[in-house]
Design a protein around this nucleic acid. Structure first.
Lengths: 137, 137
DNA sequence: CAGGGTAGTTGGTAATACCAACTACCTCAA
DNA sequence: TTGAGGTAGTTGGTATTACCAACTACCCTG
């Protein structure tokens, strides 16, 4: 039975996740963003999804996206672009400023998370990366 | 090689954390709780901290705790207990119902997270658990 | 025993996220 | 081709979360 290690693994994963979320939260707050907004920026770096696609990606209701994008747009971070194919659809796209902030935020996250994993040597990090990659696959 | 793994580790950790938070969120919602409330229950399982200690533990402002505990108390999940030592302090304690919900929630989390790590075999889980344990240490 | 510090609450604000209802648009079938 | 039904997004209303600043009640020290 794997019961003992399974229990410990869950706790470790949850604890780890809170640590990561704390980092994300802090990085976001440093730039006057919420974690969700920072996440949106990260998503938009290489995509211009429709509102609904963004909602699915984030696991949020589409009505939550409207306000989120409203605020980001008011700050000049994103643009709404009418779909040429479908008069109902709106694509969301980073502005130049949004791209800059996404890049800065990404760097800050990488740096902070790097601190988190600083305990591990290179081989262990590689091991961890591979194990995690297997999970999300 | 090195560059790819360095970038990939952060991304994998962040993605994993969102996956875990989604699980926690869903489990909490299943019992009409927020993630924070579920977390509070988890903390209180083996402690009766003061409000301020709880705030520190959660990384929240003490004023945020008041409302949180207000709502949990209104639902009969926790009790405020005046400190015998200090007339200003209040200890927070799970009620019997709160304990039950904490236990049920913990099981649900373990089960859902177990699904997340289902891709890994026993040896890999053990490896992952050890690596994560190293991080939080 | 007065003055300064600490614990917790209150009030006010903004953001997040939900649901339900709505508008505008699209598509398909009669 | 037109109208019925579905889809995309917004709006309005509500609850929660979390913050800060101001407040009350209490503790401790000089």
């Amino acid at each position: 039975m794997t019961k003992r290690s399974a229990l410990g693994l869950t706790d470790a994963l949850v604890q780890m996740s809170f640590a990561v979320m704390t980092v994300l939260n802090r990085v976001a707050a440093d730039h006057d963003l919420s974690t969700t907004q920072l996440r949106v920026l990260g998503i938009l770096v290489d995509r211009q999804p429709k509102m609904t696609e963004l909602a699915e990606h984030l696991g949020l209701d589409k009505s939550s996206i409207s306000g989120l994008i409203d605020r980001a747009q008011a700050r000049g971070l994103v643009e709404r672009i009418a779909s040429p194919d479908d008069g109902r659809s709106v694509h969301v796209s980073l502005t130049r400023e949004g791209h800059t902030l996404a890049r800065i935020g990404g760097q800050a996250i990488r740096q902070s998370v790097a601190t988190l994993v600083g305990q591990l040597d290179v081989a262990e990090r590689d091991q961890l990366r591979e194990l995690l990659a297997r999970l999300t696959a």
